[in-house]
Amino acid sequence: MTERKVSLIVSKGGLDDAYPALILGNAARQSGIEASIFFTFYGLDVITQSKVDHLHVNLVGNATSPMPTMVAGLPGMENLAARMMSKRMEDLDLPGPREMLEILEESGVDLYGCELAMKMFDRARDDLVPQVRDVITAGDFFDISEGAQIVFT
């Protein structure tokens, strides 16, 4: 098999934004493909200790959401939707985001935080989950991704 490599970029911190990238990264490793994930901007929440267990589902401005935007904007709605989705994933025996990150690290997916986003949201290395391999710049990311297919999720 030819050496395949994939780099995923996560720039949003919704549950529905994080999962596809986490699952794709895992699937890549399962198929023998090298994988790395770069968390930038709001995507940084996915690898932030205090946030990873409280990711929400984006309802407002989400054309596919079954809830009318007027209702979706009410306080607590996103929380409710996130809880419902988490429940659904639990039923399907899907691991939560934190466990997914653990699985990814064990599977050999390299997780990177974005340095600029770290400064912007005033986060330190200690605020991130231990599975993060390094905090790098966008330029570093492209160096690491040499020869890889880059996917912006």
Binding site: M1, R29, Q30, S31, G32, I103, E106, S107, G108
Partner: peptide, 16 residues
């Protein structure tokens, strides 16, 4: 075994 072990035992597409 841990996921890491499994990947080490079967380096290429361990599940399959």
């Amino acid at each position: 075994l841990s996921t890491r072990d499994i990947y080490a035992l079967f380096p290429n597409a361990p599940g399959k």
